[in-house]
Design a protein around this nucleic acid. Structure first.
Lengths: 227, 227
DNA sequence: GGTTGTGAACAAATTCACAGCG
DNA sequence: CGCTGTGAATTTGTTCACAACC
C-alpha cells in the first residue's frame, strides 16, 4: 500500500477508540498477538470490518499470525493523537459539570480536567474534586496558559451557543457539547455532541415499535457515531 | 404514499428527537408553520434531509406552505412513543449514577428516574435527589412494580455485562450503557451506548490531524449516531 | 494451514433536481 | 409562485470472497 493520501473514513475513526480499549485489555492479559476475529469479538463488530479499519492505519498485521498487540496499540495511539495529554476545560459547574470533573475516566485516558469555568461569580474560586472554578471571562488566558485543546460544554441549552463562541474565540479547536441544543462552529473547529435525553428518545422509538413490525425487523443495535 | 411497511431508516430515527426539540421551540415562540428550510437550520442539517426524514412519517406538509408545527409535533411524538412516560432505572449509584439521577432533563422529557439500584448494600435505602436506592437483587420486582422500560448502566466497565444480563432477565428491553465496555444483549433488546472518553478520543484524532491534510479535508462535523 | 489485506459487490444514507400540488 | 415529496444519482459504509503471504 502506498503511503499517500490515507484519509481515514469517519466511521472508522469512531471505531478506533473501541479497538484501542480492546488492545489495552489484551496487554493487561499479557496476550501478545490477536487475530481480527478475536478483536472483532471484543469490539462487538465483525472481522472484515476490523481488517478494513486497521488497513487504513497501514499494514501492521502478519498473514497467518495476526496483529502484534503492543505494536498495534502504539500505532493506533499515535494515529489518534493519544501519545500526549489533552487538557480539557469544562464550562458549566452545575451538576453535570461537577460530575464530569469527577469522572476519573477522562484523566485516566489522557484528558486531564485542567479547569472548570462558570459565569456565576459565586462559584468562582471553589475547588471541585480538585479542580478550581474560574470565571468564564478568563477563558482566553486559561486556554493559553494551560494549553487547553478541548472544551466541554455542560451548561443549560440557552447558554450553549454563547459558550461555544467563547471557546472558539479563546482558541479551543475541539468542542464536546452536552447541552441539548444545536450549536454551530466555524470551519476548522471540531464538534461532537452527547445528548442524554435524545438517546432515551431513540430507545423509546424502538421500544414503541417492538414487534409491531410483521416481518423481521432487526433488533436495534446502535453503532458508534461516525465522525 | 401508501401506508404499508414504512420502515424508518436508523439515521432518520436518530434525528427525529432533534426535530422534535426544534418544533417544541417553535411552539414556545407561537410560530404556527415552518418550512423544511427553517427546520433544517434549527436542527443543523440540510433541507432535503428534513423533507426526506419527515416523509417517512407521512405526508404531513402542505406544498407551498410548509408544516403545521403543532400537528407535526404531535405526529412525531406519537411515532417516537413519547405520548406517555417511560420510567427508567439507573444501575450504579456512584458519581455518574447520582449525577444522572439529578439530571432534570430526563424527567422533563418524559423519562422519570423511578429508582436507583446498586450492588453495594451500604448504599441501599439512601435517598439521592429524591430517588431511593435499592439493591440490585430487587430488580425484577422493581421492574414489574414501577413499569421500568429502560435501564441505564452507570457502573464500572467490569460490572457492565453482568448488569446488562440482570436488566434483561428483569424484563427491561431497552438499555443505555455509560460504562466504557462493549456489552451484548439478546435479540429483542435495544442497546445504545454513550462513552464519554471515546468522544474525546475522536476529537483528539481530528485535532491531531488538523491541517495536516494537503487538500480540502472537510472540518469535522459529527452527525448524530444512527440507530 | 491460517490470517491478512483488498478489490468488487452490496447496502445504507445523503444529496440533487424537479414534478406535483396547494 | 413556493414548498413539499420523491425518484434518481451520488457518496459513504459494510460485507464478501479470495489472492497474497507468512
Amino acid at each position: 500500500m502506498v503511503d499517500r493520501i490515507r484519509r481515514i473514513p469517519e466511521a472508522t475513526v469512531a471505531r478506533l477508540p473501541v479497538y484501542l480499549r480492546s488492545l489495552a485489555e489484551l496487554v493487561d492479559e499479557k496476550i501478545a498477538t490477536v487475530s481480527s476475529e478475536r478483536l472483532a469479538e471484543m469490539a462487538g463488530v465483525n472481522a472484515a470490518k476490523v481488517r478494513k479499519d486497521l488497513s487504513y492505519l497501514g499494514s501492521y498485521g502478519t498473514r497467518g499470525v495476526g496483529y502484534d498487540v503492543e505494536y498495534l496499540l502504539f500505532q493506533m495511539s499515535r494515529e489518534l493523537g493519544l501519545t500526549h495529554d489533552w487538557p480539557v476545560a469544562i464550562v458549566g459547574a452545575g451538576n453535570l459539570g461537577q460530575a464530569l470533573a469527577n469522572y476519573g475516566g477522562f484523566t485516566q485516558r489522557g484528558f486531564p480536567v485542567a479547569v472548570l469555568v462558570d459565569a456565576d461569580a459565586s462559584k468562582v474560586g471553589q475547588i471541585i474534586h480538585g479542580v478550581r472554578v474560574h470565571h468564564i471571562d478568563e477563558l482566553p488566558e486559561l486556554s493559553a496558559t494551560l494549553g487547553i485543546g478541548i472544551g466541554i460544554i455542560a451548561t443549560p441549552a440557552s447558554a450553549a451557543q454563547d459558550v461555544a463562541d467563547r471557546l472558539v474565540a479563546a482558541g479551543v479547536a475541539s468542542i464536546l457539547n452536552f447541552a441539548p441544543a444545536v450549536i454551530s462552529v466555524p470551519d476548522g473547529t471540531s464538534l461532537r455532541k452527547v445528548d442524554l435525553a435524545l438517546e432515551l428518545q431513540i430507545l423509546s422509538f424502538y421500544q414503541e415499535h417492538r414487534d409491531l413490525e410483521s416481518d423481521g425487523a432487526p433488533p436495534h443495535q446502535a453503532p458508534l457515531a461516525p465522525g
